[in-house]
Design a protein around this nucleic acid. Structure first.
Lengths: 216, 216
DNA sequence: GAGTTACGCTACGACCTGTAGCGAAAGAGC
DNA sequence: GCTCTTTCGCTACAGGTCGTAGCGTAACTC
């Protein structure tokens, strides 16, 4: 389990009253993922999650306002398993993380849930913020790490030292993140084709060399 | 209006019986888009669409099996407006289409609907096929056109003539499509930041020159 | 005119949502 | 131990949506 929980309120302080059951938390999130596998986002209901978790429906509503927020927390922990392997060169590092991300998104829970909550977040600002803090922003670390590692190896130029250097670097990180994550998501969910070693290599080559240098 | 309709069955043949009302078709699709703007995907109901269109709810169900299929047809026509401007060089052509695609995805109808139907399609094969034929495949023409135009200009190498040349070319087109569409979608819907001229230029530069040549 | 199909309307059972009220359980502080 | 506070499971509920069935009527073909 990772440091930060994403729940609405986190009362495990030394305050009076019966504390919230941590087992119930785990049971609910596990049940949510299991139900997503079986019935998908469209068929998921709060009642069924409660039944699977062996918990009253009211308990769910005491912690999450609706289905979307629950599902975000249920799948968020899966994304924390991602890590950047050190394979010695930037190309291999990127291929590795692309394959990991592809494998994660190929799982039925994440596949059906991620796009759904993103869709819902277009009309729900609180949900978008929750997605950002619980999932998206946490994964930018991979881009930052890979970037600094490549800079240390001399594969990428170091950060510009100028006054706007830092801002430009952050902007570039966002761009790279959108390109990598976007391409993998689109390949898997829209084009519905697998993210395998061949595709990862081809994509990474394009990312590193560009269209101009694609066919040497 | 574009050549092919995407409806389930298209009976305007010379067959007996009362023909389906074309005005009802348009009214329903218009009402669907309008309702998407007002209430978003989550708040959209078949009953409301019917009421807005001035049509009985049963009429909707006679043509579309569910909300997802209706929405796919409602937004599909918007994507046919995309076209590849001829601005003289590959970089400008790509920037132009990226900006167009970004503007289209920034509209509230498409923003809230596209991800939702894709999410639903992960557990509904018929829906995925409908999305593919009504939206996705139709836009690959842009990549193909831009590619052949760039080849004619000498900006990209011509198709390999070998036995696997055609297959490799098709594979590359798919890759480029996933990268462009994926990056724009991710930027707009996940990162929730605008696709403006600056970003389009930065992204296109990365796409053409690659990470290696990003900061000259 | 006969046959066929689409339309609007109403009604309906099944389901999901989100909330309220209750008594019981599980902690903190004294 | 005792009180206070909060959570828990349970039941019940109003409101809304889904998708279908049945009916009489409208529109079109042959």
């Amino acid at each position: 389990m990772v440091a930060g929980m994403h729940q609405s309120a986190r009362p495990p302080k030394g305050r009076p009253g019966r504390p919230r059951s941590v087992e119930a938390d785990h049971a609910i999130l596990d049940a949510t993922r299991a139900a997503l596998v079986d019935v998908g986002w469209g068929g998921l209901t709060m009642g069924e999650v409660a039944a699977r978790a062996g918990v009253a429906k009211t308990t769910l509503y005491r912690r999450w306002a609706n289905k979307s927020e629950l599902v975000v927390d249920a799948v968020a922990v899966l994304f924390d398993e991602l890590e950047l392997p050190d394979r010695g060169c930037l190309q291999s590092d990127i291929e590795g993380v692309v394959l990991q991300f592809g494998a994660l998104l190929a799982r039925p829970e994440t596949k059906t849930a991620l796009m759904a909550v993103v869709a819902e977040s277009t009309t729900d600002d609180a949900l978008r913020e929750r997605i950002r803090s619980a999932i998206v922003d946490r994964q930018k670390r991979l881009v930052l790490l890979g970037r600094s590692r490549a800079q240390a190896r001399g594969e990428l130029p170091p950060d510009a030292g100028g006054p706007d250097g830092e801002e430009a670097a952050e902007c570039t990180v966002g761009l790279i993140f959108d390109v990598i994550a976007g391409a993998v998501v689109h390949r898997l969910l829209v084009s519905a084709e697998p993210v395998d070693a061949d595709w990862a290599r081809q994509f990474t080559t394009l990312l590193l060399a560009g269209l101009a240098g694609l066919k040497p």
